[in-house]
Design a protein around this nucleic acid. Structure first.
Lengths: 141, 141
DNA sequence: AACGAGATCAAGAATAATTCTAATTAAGTA
DNA sequence: TACTTAATTAGAATTATTCTTGATCTCGTT
């Protein structure tokens, strides 16, 4: 699979080599954007690259996160999930079906923090019920 | 230690019994607001209640979170930390010293989500460097 | 194209966080 | 007080993540 030069540039800019394994892990994340866990990425990667190991998947994810190509999604006491959406966005967690959806951030929020803080990253996570689950329950009445 | 009736009310309103262990765990979280992990809460609780077990600490934290008295703080691939601040606020993680600070949310942001989502909770987490670490580095020059 | 240095990988062991199990104890209620 | 149910304890079990070591690959230089 051919990745855009944007991706390769971003990796090399972070001093990170583009290896077949990292390419594969990134491809998995771009293919199905359902925010898989490391183990799920591992299972999917093995289909095309049967020799890849779980430790390597973790290493690749670390490298991709460090380069800014991948974001981690942290939910309550659940395994970390990963996301290849480069656009500025936040996450919605459906407590009924467990899905995580990307939410395009409409406006860049002007956070007002107390003086003296240097903010490098802001992360917004919503929790509730997704449209599919709300509809499903309505039709059950 | 005597807890305010507000707390007891909130617990019973959630159908959760107020036990000595839950009282102790909550007291620990209110005493030092440094967002400890479950294991840290366990260690601190043992000082006043030597027989408490780690499983109980987890159970108590679950109960307190369910009642809304305690919030979980999720950071990248780190153990979950806990927070007893009832006021609407967000969290700042200092990537230099590892501290987590409560940030009073200045304005309630009017989130605009796509239609059909039911949002029950919104969580904002910042990452960067805290005032103390920025000052420390300046004085090292 | 071959070479060497350093980064990366694979496999499995090790660690750490969290959950589960089963027996005992405590809380709320008649 | 006796009963019923929920909560606690201790330790085993599970799960997520990290570490270790030797083999392999990549890249920049010949």
């Amino acid at each position: 699979m051919r990745l855009s030069s944007d991706v390769t540039n971003r990796l090399t800019a972070s001093g990170i080599r583009l290896t077949r394994q990292r390419e594969e892990v990134l491809a998995v994340l771009m293919q199905k954007r359902d925010h898989p866990t490391a183990v799920e990425v591992f299972i999917r990667s093995k289909k095309h690259m049967p020799t890849i190991s779980l430790a390597t998947v973790y290493n690749c994810l670390d490298a991709l996160v460090a380069s800014g190509l991948v974001k981690q999604v942290n939910l309550d006491r659940a395994p970390t999930r990963y996301c290849a959406n480069l656009l500025d966005h936040s996450h919605f967690f459906c407590e009924e079906c467990g899905a995580v959806h990307d939410i395009e951030t409409p406006v860049h929020q002007p956070w007002t923090l107390p003086a003296g803080y240097l903010v490098k990253q802001a992360e917004v996570t919503f929790r509730g019920r997704c449209p599919a689950c709300i509809n499903k329950n309505l039709s059950n009445l």
